[in-house]
């Protein structure tokens, strides 16, 4: 839906982005050797993947703290001005366990440990005294896009000045690194949304959820088939809701799924001028925690995106959710 302006207010915007990867780095060849891929290394390489980041000692929470602290330090904002903290990603007690201990940590969900929330701890550790918190779950790779969307709405409706969105995801040590032909990294990403921003303005957002595809394992083929037409539909709607024409779009900032799937989707969506920021697919692989924002930050830092350019961020999350956000840089 288009983001309506309320009482002449400025459009909420993305004020800052930062992210953190763990120190461990693996090539797809190494992942294949460790039997952490279902497909061959050659197949994954042909799909554009090269390296992924693997958390060995870091917990998801550690990564979330690093990403959020970097953002706060860099943006130099008053922590007291943050009125909302939205956390997404690895749930509950699992957020505090390293990859080797993730499975036993999951058992903690049945005890008092389930009330050890990373969102509230993050509020404390970051010293955000005025931030109320909540967490998002069950949105997979669209979590951070959803967090930004909600933050934007609450900034407008509740007068919140700043909202910090943090997402952190990882895979337990033996869980494998491939999700339907995509190589996945562990990572955390933090996004600051401000009520009155002039750059990176959030112009529209579209989410389509199709509950029919909730059973990822048994509906795998249907999900692969439905991915493309629904993605096209969401991208077109996001662009239309922004009041743009397909030819207005300068950049598409993808989630880092396979290059092949983006080539196909690009053929289907037909945005005549748009460029696709794909540099990070080979460098980082797919991060559940926030590909789009990591890529957006890198595209800004690299001087790819110029002020005023029209950008669409798109991601798909198992479950199944398709989300697009239109941003005016």
């Amino acid at each position: 839906m288009p983001f309506a302006k309320l009482n002449g207010q400025s459009t909420p915007a993305i004020a800052a982005i930062n992210y953190a990867f763990p120190e461990g780095l693996r090539t797809v060849g190494e992942l294949a050797d460790e039997r952490l891929l279902k497909s061959s290394a050659e197949t994954m390489e042909s799909f554009g993947f090269g390296n992924v980041h693997v958390a060995l000692t870091e917990t998801p929470y550690d990564l979330a703290v690093i990403a959020a602290k970097k953002l706060l330090e860099e943006s130099r904002i008053d922590p007291a001005s943050v009125g909302l903290l939205i956390y997404g990603g690895t749930p509950g007690s699992m957020a505090f366990a390293p990859s080797e201990g993730a499975e036993s940590a999951a058992a903690g969900l049945c005890t008092m440990s389930r009330f050890k929330y990373p969102s509230t701890r993050l509020q404390y550790d970051l010293d955000l005294p005025n931030a109320s918190t909540f967490a998002l779950d069950q949105l997979a790779c669209t979590t951070l896009l959803a967090a930004v969307r909600i933050a934007r709405s609450l900034c407008l409706t509740e007068g919140i000045e700043r909202a910090l969105c943090v997402s952190s995801e990882f895979f337990p040590a033996n869980a494998g690194r491939e999700a339907i032909f995509n190589c996945t990294s562990d990572a955390a990403c933090a996004v600051l949304v401000e009520r009155n921003g002039l750059r990176n303005r959030l112009v529209s957002a579209t989410t389509v959820t199709k509950g029919y595809y909730w059973d990822v394992d048994s509906l795998r083929d249907e999900i692969v088939a439905s991915y493309f037409p629904t993605a096209r539909h969401v991208l077109h709607r996001t662009i239309a809701d922004a009041g743009w024409e397909p030819s207005d779009v300068d950049w598409v900032i993808p989630h880092n799924v396979s290059m092949r799937s983006w080539e196909i989707l690009s053929g289907l969506v037909r945005l005549p001028r748009a460029r696709l920021f794909t540099q990070n697919i080979v460098r980082h692989g797919h991060t559940l925690a926030g590909d789009n924002f990591i890529n957006y930050r890198d595209a800004l830092d690299g001087g790819c995106i110029e002020p005023g350019q029209r950008v669409v961020l798109f991601s798909y999350g198992f479950g199944a959710h398709w989300t697009g956000i239109a941003v005016e840089a």
Binding site: S39, T43, S46, F181, V224, F228, R260, I264
Partner: peptide, 10 residues
Amino acid sequence: LFERAVMETG
């Protein structure tokens, strides 16, 4: 492209 991707993924 779609056909090729599916054929390659096994």
